[in-house]
Computed example of a mutant assay.
Amino acid sequence: MLRLILTALVLLPLTARAETCPAPPNHGDSLDALYQEVQAAPSEAAAQRVVNRMWELWADAPDARAQEILDRGLRRRASFDYLGAVQDFDRLIAYCPDYAEGYNQRGFISFIRRDYPAALVDLDRVIALSPRHMGALTGRALTLMALGRTEAARADLLRALALNPWLPERRFLDQLPPLDDETDL
């Protein structure tokens, strides 16, 4: 009996560590409506209010544990504690590998730190998980620009602008050569 109790006490921490993250919330319908709203926005300011609502959905983590890790990482990033923020986003990604925002935030920090190859890996993962994530698309475009890959940067920027024509990053289109198959914007 004592052996059984000891075994249970040893295995209890392993069971807690084996906790899995639930699937990310499905905000597809809400995002569809917000994309329509942002495309119809009469001004950049109105569009930004819609985009802020999108960020609320993207930052809606799968469960309370994931939300706590994300929020702590965002606070650390805001206070310029990039190392601490990356550690939090690493934890979030390890716990919730199918939640795009962990990769997006870690990729953003890599971009800020000018580690463009690392940023690109994370942004590619975000786009694979959430193909219409405008933050990841514009972040990827800016990362590709920094790497001198202007054609791919323009393609991503055009994809993002098709979702939201009011993006501030639209100003970079003039700095990027047109694509061979690009017709009229």
Rank of each mutant, 00 (worst) to 15 (best):
V50W: 00
R17Q: 12
D60N: 08
R91T: 13
L74Y: 13
H27R: 11
Y99M: 09
R17C: 14
R75F: 05
P22K: 05
I93R: 05
V51A: 04
A94F: 06
A94L: 05
Q48P: 05
P97S: 00
V51Y: 13
D71W: 03
W55I: 04
D32E: 10
P25L: 04
C96N: 07
R75Y: 02
R65V: 09
W55E: 03
L74R: 15
Y35L: 04
L83M: 07
D90Y: 02
S43N: 13
G28N: 13
V50A: 01
P22F: 06
A59N: 15
E44M: 01
D81Y: 09
W55T: 06
L34A: 03
R65P: 01
P42Y: 04
D60H: 11
V86A: 01
Q39T: 07
D32F: 03
S43K: 11
I93L: 05
E19D: 11
P97D: 10
E101N: 15
L57S: 11
R49G: 05
P22R: 08
D98Y: 04
A85V: 06
C96L: 02
C96P: 04
L83A: 15
Y99S: 08
I69Q: 12
D88V: 03
S79D: 14
D71A: 15
G28Q: 13
P97C: 00
M54R: 06
D90K: 10
G73S: 12
E19Y: 09
E68G: 08
S43C: 11
D63V: 06
A64C: 06
D63W: 12
A45H: 07
L57M: 10
V50P: 07
A45C: 03
A23E: 14
D81P: 04
E101V: 05
A66Y: 14
N52V: 00
L57H: 07
L57R: 11
T15A: 13
P42W: 00
Y99K: 06
N52K: 00
A18C: 05
A45V: 13
A94D: 13
A33K: 14
V38L: 08
R53N: 09
P25S: 01
R91V: 03
A16F: 11
D29V: 07
A18P: 08
Y35M: 09
I69E: 07
P24E: 04
R53A: 07
